[in-house]
Every structure is written in structure tokens, then in C-alpha cells.
Design a protein around this nucleic acid. Structure first.
Length: 678
DNA sequence: TACGTGGCGCTTTTT
DNA sequence: GCGCCACGTA
């Protein structure tokens, strides 16, 4: 593959950079001392250089970051020279919106988003340096699993002979290796010792998987970080290009970065060292994804000249809630001791610890209390029910529906990951990247009479044709002659013609038109036959087509789809948002949010903390931080609920002990509620 | 070789 | 309720 020229070639000589005051038209000046407290102000107006901001829950972390960006802009920094890394793309967008609100400067040039989306952006531009075509596909966990399973089969591993880990387990192993930058051997020894005897085989599969991804021009989520880092390490011209571009780097939620993300930042900041990281070690809840809060604890070691700011004034919660939060985190050994101070006055309402008989009683309690709160004029959007795992909310959903209480749930199933969405998108993926094996096979297997075997044969023929004849000028010319069973012939012809229709001569139509064509020509019929809930899925596909209309570029559209978690939560401005509804969410997904009233449900040992996290102190401490995050979401009222019993379908009823986290809270800080049935 | 069926085990958190 | 697996049938 030929490498494409860089937008700008630069030499490796460091450039002196001086902050300059913007020629100020007095009207745009922000009165920082009036808008910020002393601690925030110090951080926002700090001189360039490495800055560590330890920000307690509810202390105005986002505000501090936002004003820092505004401050940089007001001081004449070009938006293009700012890189803002956040935990979700939505968080970046909101921050930049807020900047635009306080400052009449066009800040759209700022690079803002998740590490993954920024990596994606760089790789689309310069990935050719590593041999990737800019139309590379992004694989989600399911695609990854599929491809790994293919690779395992090709490695001659017979699952009947040895017990070999399945695709999803391997995906997790590979992911850990990448995100924590450890060797396979170390990682297995630490986390999967029972697979150590298979070390060589697993390494072999890993190598094959890497090769396969390269051959199919595909990247998984981890590649978006790893290949970015690799590219910057191997190509000094690209690295120095971005170092120069990103004069100021700001990182939100730094406590949840992993090793490879920290390395990326360090590499980009190596010359100018203008890196501001903001976070709270007590809210680090992503270690299972390789996050390591040592990154934040050791930041001053990596940047000895770093200035450290602590912002500890809590603006969110009443003191009653804050003291419970402080008590909840006390038992953790590994932490920066902080002294969160309440700024709000007391509301004389102690957080409630609510004992219930079982899950359905818990659901009734929450529902009834929600109705009462609504009568007290609390907006339903200001109420949240938080839980450890999605399935904990099942009974509650039923109860809320029964009582006609509207709720919105940050769903576990992400929009893009639903089968019908991925089926339709596989056509678009193939058009964008003809080497996309996973997409090709998925598409082929939609046809009646085509299963694994036929899909594999078709793929091999297609792969061969790509290697021999290169660029596609006509799909039918290449695909129609391929041999398919008589049962599938008619459908195959139709599929091929559809490809010609959506990408004539290999050139893609606009995404929305492609989606509509695929649905009309093929998928509508397929969905009717294969799904009981055809109507719902059809509706999703309409929504997908509508969403796609804002994109004219196919790669842009596919990247977005892969990198946003949830169309409701992140993308679609036209829906959700203003309708009044109670929020149901996992604690993880509620990170960064706040509500007037918070219910935390299923606070029993085994549910929260999760039974899987009871083995090691580190895991338990993370659960405790998770509990801390849950508690600190509440502004005015907090309910901690624990049922005595869990009714399960098969196993019968299981008695529950109250969560150990509840016992760690001194009795006098909470009020015990005894719930009776009327 | 495709595909329907029934049983089983399990169910954390997500870019 | 869901995916995975083994098995039987066309």
C-alpha cells in the first residue's frame, strides 16, 4: 500500500511557543473570579505546564475544564491547538457547547472526544503509514469474537480435543494485553492462570488474529488506541506534526485512563508539556477495562514540575448526603484522602436506608415514592434509580410501566449492536471496505440456504478476486459468477444487484440512501420472516436511516456508529431529552451526572457489591468506589434500598444480606425506614 | 450442509 | 429472557 502525504511536513526542531494575550474586545471578557471559587480559579488560570487537578465529586470539575478551555481561547490560543479528551463523546460535546455559550469565539476547531474517537480520526488520516486503508472497518466486541473464532478454527485447534477459550474470552484477554501493555504470559499468570498451559497456542492465535485484522483492513476498539500509539512511535514526522498541533492537552476523568491512554498523552505532550489532567481517584471504576488509577496518583512523578490543585468544595449535595458519601469511602485503603466540604445548607433530610421483603416490593416502594416526589413538584428527569447491573432493573421496569410512570433507561443493549442494525450496516461496511470479512459473511448468511460453510466459500472466492483484480468497478461482474446453491441463487442475484444499486461502480451513495435501498430490497422481507417483533425493528431501521441523514461521508457515518454507545444517549438530538421521564441507569453510566433524588437498589451482598468482586481487596475497593459514585450523584434526597429476599425463577428464593457497604455507614447518619404492606 | 429444536447455564460494568 | 451447543432431519 502506498503511504499518503502528510498534510504538513515538519522538522523535528522544537518550536518555542509563547502565550499571547488576545487583542481583547472588552465585550468578550469573562469575569473568572466572579464565576469560580478560589481553588477553581487557580487551576483555570494556571500558567502553562503540567497541571493535576484532583477534583472531588460535585466540585465543579466540568466547570473547571470548561473555563480552562475558555481561558486558553481568550488568551489567543487557536482552537485547533487544543485537544480535549473525555470519557464519552457526549461529554466533549457538552463541554464545547458550554464554552461556546460563555465565549463568542468559534471553538469548533477544537479536537474533542474520547481517546478512541481521536485515535480513529488520526488513523483515518495517517493510518496508511501502518498499511491501513483509510476506509478501515471498526469491529465491535461481537465482530471481534466472530473473527477470533474464525482464526481459532484456522489455527487447527479442535475444540473437541482441548478445552480452548472461546472467542469472547480470548477477546477479553487480548484486550487486557493491549490496554495494560503487559505480556501475554504475565497477564495469563495474573488473571487467567488456568490458561497458562495454553500460552503458546494463545499467542499463536493472537498473532493470527493480528494478521487477519490487517488483511481485512479492520480494527477493533483496542487498535484505535494501540495502532495510534504505534503510528506515533514509529513515525516521528506524524508524531511531531500532532505534538505541534496539540499545544494544550486537557484530559477529563483521568482516573479511568489505562496504561496505553496515559502513554498516548505523554507522547503527545512530550515537548510542550502543557497537559492538564482532571480526575478523582475515589471515582475510578473501570479497572476491568484496564484503567489504572495509579496514572493519576503517579502523575506528579512523571511530571515533577506539575502543579497540583485540589478542588474540594462540593456544590452538589446537601451535607446529609455528603457525610454519608465520605463515610462510604472511608474503608478504602488505597486513596488520596480528601476533605470534601459542603457548600449547601442542610435540608434536614437524612438519607434513608430502606428494608424491603423482595424485589417486587422494592419496585413498588420506588414507584410510589416517585409519584409522591412528583406531587412535590420534583421533575421526573431529576430522579434516578441506580443499580449495579442492568438486570437488577427488570422488576422496576414492569412496575413503572404498570403505573404509567414514564422512564428512560440507558440500555445495556446498544443501538448499533442489535442484530438487525448490524445486518443492514454490513452492506455499508462492505462497500466502505471490500476486505471486511466479518461484514461479507454476515451479509451472505442473511440469505436462505447460506450458512457458515457457503459463506466461507463465497468469502474465499471474493478474497481471491480482490487480490487478483483489485478495485471494484462492478459488483455483479465479480459476484454473480460465484457458485451458490440452487436454493440461494435467486436471493444471491438480488443481493448482488443491491450492491450495484447502493454503490454503482464501487462508489457509495449517501449512507441514508444505501440503508433505505438495503431495507427495501432485502431486509424488510428478511425481518418479517425472522423476527416476531418486526414492527419494532423496522422502526429502529427508520431511526437509523434518519440518523444517517446528517452524514454524507460513509466512513464518517460508520465510525460514528461504532464509537457512540447509544443513539438515544449520545446522538439523536431530535428524541429524548425534553420529555419528562425517570432515569434508570447502571452506576457506571450515571458517572458525571447528578439528580435531585437518587434511589440505589439491590444493595445486598452479592448484588452490590457484585459476588464476582468479593475475592480480592482491590476488586472490593473498586465496588466501594462504585457505591461512592452512586451516592454522590444525589443532590437532595437519597434512598438506599435492600430487599431481604431474591425470588428467582428456577432456584427458588434466596435470602439476601444487606450490603456490607451499608454497614460501613454509621447509624446516626441515616434513617431506617420500615416498609409495611397496606 | 442448513436449519430447527430442545436443553443448559448463566446474568457486571463499556469505548 | 439469551446465546451456545448437540443432535436429528431434509
Amino acid at each position: 500500500m502506498t503511504s499518503r502525504p502528510l498534510p504538513l511536513l515538519v522538522t523535528a526542531v522544537p518550536r518555542e511557543y509563547t502565550l499571547q494575550r488576545a487583542p481583547r474586545s472588552t465585550s468578550i471578557h469573562i469575569d473568572y473570579p466572579a464565576e469560580l471559587n478560589e481553588q477553581q480559579l487557580a487551576a483555570v488560570t494556571a500558567p502553562p505546564g503540567p497541571l493535576l487537578v484532583i477534583a472531588g465529586a460535585g466540585s465543579g470539575k466540568t466547570r473547571t475544564l470548561t473555563y480552562r478551555v475558555a481561558y486558553l481561547l481568550e488568551n489567543g490560543i487557536d482552537p485547533r491547538n487544543i485537544l480535549l479528551l473525555t470519557f464519552t463523546n457526549k461529554a466533549a460535546r457538552q463541554m464545547l457547547d458550554r464554552v461556546a455559550n460563555v465565549l463568542p469565539i468559534d471553538a469548533s476547531g477544537i479536537w474533542g472526544g474520547t481517546f478512541h474517537s481521536i485515535g480513529n480520526r488520526m488513523l483515518r488520516r495517517h493510518g496508511s503509514a501502518l498499511g491501513y486503508n483509510s476506509g478501515f472497518s471498526i469491529m465491535d466486541r461481537e465482530d471481534q469474537k466472530d473473527l477470533i473464532n474464525t482464526v481459532v478454527a484456522s489455527a487447527g485447534i479442535d475444540p473437541k480435543e482441548i478445552r480452548f477459550p472461546k472467542g469472547d474470552v480470548l477477546a477479553e484477554i487480548f484486550s487486557f494485553v493491549v490496554n495494560t501493555e503487559t505480556s501475554m504470559e504475565e497477564l495469563l499468570a495474573e488473571k487467567f492462570p488456568y490458561f497458562l498451559p495454553l500460552l503458546e497456542k494463545i499467542k499463536d492465535v493472537h498473532a493470527r488474529y493480528e494478521k487477519k485484522k490487517k488483511a481485512t483492513n479492520s480494527m477493533d476498539f483496542d487498535d484505535l488506541l494501540q495502532k495510534t500509539l504505534l503510528m506515533l512511535q514509529q513515525h516521528e514526522n506524524i508524531a511531531s506534526f500532532y505534538r505541534r498541533q496539540f499545544q494544550f492537552i486537557l484530559v477529563d476523568e483521568y482516573q479511568d485512563t489505562n496504561k496505553i491512554q496515559a502513554d498516548l498523552i505523554d507522547l503527545l505532550a512530550r515537548e510542550h508539556r502543557n497537559v492538564m489532567v482532571v480526575g478523582d481517584d475515589a471515582q475510578s471504576i473501570y479497572s476491568w477495562r484496564g484503567a489504572n488509577f495509579q496514572n493519576i496518583l503517579e502523575f506528579p512523578k512523571r511530571y515533577p514540575e506539575a502543579q497540583v490543585f485540589k478542588i474540594e468544595m462540593n456544590y452538589r449535595s446537601v451535607p446529609e448526603i455528603l457525610t454519608v458519601a465520605n463515610a462510604a469511602i472511608t474503608a478504602n485503603v488505597e486513596q488520596f484522602r480528601k476533605n470534601l466540604q459542603a457548600t449547601r445548607g442542610s435540608n434536614s433530610v437524612k438519607p434513608a436506608v430502606v428494608a424491603l421483603n423482595d424485589g417486587s416490593e422494592q419496585a413498588q416502594f420506588v414507584a410510589q415514592r416517585i409519584l409522591e416526589l412528583r406531587d412535590e413538584n420534583i421533575d421526573l428527569n431529576e430522579i434516578a434509580v441506580l443499580y449495579r447491573a442492568h438486570y437488577h432493573a427488570l422488576e422496576l421496569q414492569l412496575e413503572l410501566s404498570r403505573r404509567g410512570i414514564p422512564y428512560q433507561i440507558t440500555s445495556g443493549i446498544r443501538f448499533f449492536e442489535q442484530a438487525h442494525i448490524k445486518d443492514v450496516i454490513s452492506f455499508l461496511r462492505l462497500v466502505a471496505n471490500p476486505r471486511d470479512e466479518v461484514a461479507f459473511k454476515r451479509m451472505a448468511k442473511l440469505l436462505p440456504g447460506i450458512g457458515n460453510r457457503s459463506a466461507e466459500n463465497l468469502w474465499n472466492a471474493w478474497d481471491k478476486s480482490l487480490n487478483e483484480r483489485g478495485e471494484i468497478t462492478s459488483w455483479s461482474e465479480r459476484l454473480l459468477p460465484m457458485s451458490v446453491g440452487t436454493r440461494s441463487k435467486k436471493h444471491w442475484t438480488q443481493l448482488v444487484h443491491t450492491l450495484d444499486e447502493i454503490a454503482p461502480g464501487g462508489q457509495p451513495n449517501p449512507p441514508s440512501e444505501m440503508i433505505t435501498s438495503v431495507v427495501e430490497a432485502i431486509y424488510d422481507d428478511y425481518a418479517k420472516v425472522n423476527f416476531t417483533n418486526y414492527e419494532l425493528r423496522k422502526e429502529d431501521l427508520n431511526q437509523l436511516a434518519a440518523f444517517s441523514r446528517q452524514f454524507k461521508d460513509l466512513n464518517e457515518f460508520l465510525s460514528q456508529l461504532a464509537l457512540i454507545s447509544n443513539v438515544d444517549a449520545e446522538a439523536a438530538p431530535n428524541q429524548g431529552g425534553d420529555k419528562e421521564a425517570v432515569n434508570l441507569s447502571t452506576v457506571h453510566q450515571a458517572k458525571g451526572l447528578e439528580f435531585h433524588t437518587v434511589f440505589v437498589i439491590w444493595l445486598t451482598d452479592g448484588m452490590f457489591p457484585s459476588s464476582r468482586s468479593l475475592d480480592t481487596r482491590a476488586a472490593l475497593e473498586e465496588e466501594r468506589r462504585l457505591f461512592y459514585v452512586a451516592v454522590t450523584r444525589a443532590k437532595d434526597e437519597l434512598y438506599l434500598a435492600y430487599p431481604h429476599m431474591r425470588l428467582t425463577g428456577g432456584y427458588g428464593d434466596v435470602f439476601q444480606r444487606p450490603s456490607r457497604f451499608l454497614k460501613e455507614i454509621p447509624n446516626e447518619l441515616v434513617e431506617d425506614w420500615q416498609v409495611k404492606r397496606s
